[in-house]
Design a binder for these strands. Sequence first.
DNA 1: ACCTGAACACCGTTCAAGT
DNA 2: ACCTGAACACCGTTCAAGT
Lengths: 250, 250
Amino acid sequence: MNTVIRVWSGSQVTRDSAPAPDRAMQPLTRPHIVAAGLRLLEREGAAGLSMRKLAGELGRAPAAVYRHISNKRELLSLLFDEVSRQIVVPDAGGDPRTVVLEAAQSAHRTMEEHGWIAAGMLDGELPGAASLRLAEFILDVLVRNGMSDVQAARLYVALWQFLVGHLVAAAGVPGCPSPGPVARPGDGDGDCPTVRRVAPLIERMSDQERFTTGLRLLLDGAFAEPRAPRAGTAAEEEVPVSRPAPGAAE
Amino acid sequence: MNTVIRVWSGSQVTRDSAPAPDRAMQPLTRPHIVAAGLRLLEREGAAGLSMRKLAGELGRAPAAVYRHISNKRELLSLLFDEVSRQIVVPDAGGDPRTVVLEAAQSAHRTMEEHGWIAAGMLDGELPGAASLRLAEFILDVLVRNGMSDVQAARLYVALWQFLVGHLVAAAGVPGCPSPGPVARPGDGDGDCPTVRRVAPLIERMSDQERFTTGLRLLLDGAFAEPRAPRAGTAAEEEVPVSRPAPGAAE
DNA sequence: ACCTGAACACCGTTCAAGT
DNA sequence: ACCTGAACACCGTTCAAGT
């Protein structure tokens, strides 16, 4: 197994030790606000985060927060950044397939701890500065191991979309643990024999499995493509301007 | 190219022709409500759907809706069902990889038309009865072509999660078209040379490409695994790692 | 059975006014 | 510069009361 190193230089906010229990009348700062937001999310979940409650948590009037943050979206963006800063990536050496798999799993683990992220994805401009480091790491490993920029871009986009989808699907209804991708065949819906047979297998899959098996398929697919044998500078084929897919009616 | 057939028996609600312009005092029905909901979504987008506006659209008091529907989640569920009913699947014959690809693309196309779906994913129990038909179709094709139930289940879950992730990532901030998986390297964030180089490639990818290339990777990965030889008919050759033309795929 | 009016307990955000 | 009080324009949902 690879040594685990931290890719970030240290978080300015820790969830457990708030900057201070909001004493006397120290003026608010963004770190105060971010910390309070994380506390609120941890305590009440995604639905519990409101600008008003946040202000309450900080002991101020709701309007006070707006002196330091322009709206709720910016708040979500800051919170997401704080979480992505905690993503840990493996050592870059070794089999690239394994390294990328571990990096993705690490991102998955970190974000999964924060169920609200899935909900935040939809109205925050979440892919912020901190997640750049993860992108840099993955793209760099791929390219350094012979993928063209285009191949790396494609795989990275696919990985990201898959991660987002997994988080959203796993979060599902805020309360329920995981509705899964298929509902149980109900009464009125013509019989779906295959679904009926396979559904239990799906329901039995753990969250980890749902993520990792898909991840493996993506990586298998990507690494099955021919790559350049060696590379320091992987300038290769130029992107051939996407043509419409051969058999696809689109 | 495959003949396109409808897998559903007909929608009881059409978006364009509402059941009636809400005349005199016909009692409300669920189809009325679903139709009004779709009208509202089309006109005002995901953020424009509220129980109060829905009631307004129907010419009733807000409370009236609750006689027919128990809450907003159920409404979203019904709306999602109505949309999934419109998914068209290809003919089941032919290369399974292509058939599944086309089915997924079809689902993508249908859901993409309804940007609100991504938002609804998070607080509706969306995978309802209608999407069972799609699941049945895909699982059936996979198993009929030699995949084990477990293999089929895994690929299906991966496809679903990827679709969800794509929709959410593509929907992004309600207003903005597509923030994409990486933000532009900003000022303060240490230089990320690879991201800086690759980001333009990612931004240049169309929505279709972002979906289809990932889909292909998943299918490549899944069909690279050994499967049982027999299918319904004759020699289904052991797939020797499908290779899409190097960089010239698409 | 179906609907209305009015209310309850919330939202995000703005803005004049205070210190 | 930073904060408060009060307001604006909304939410989802409930419930007694009407017909």
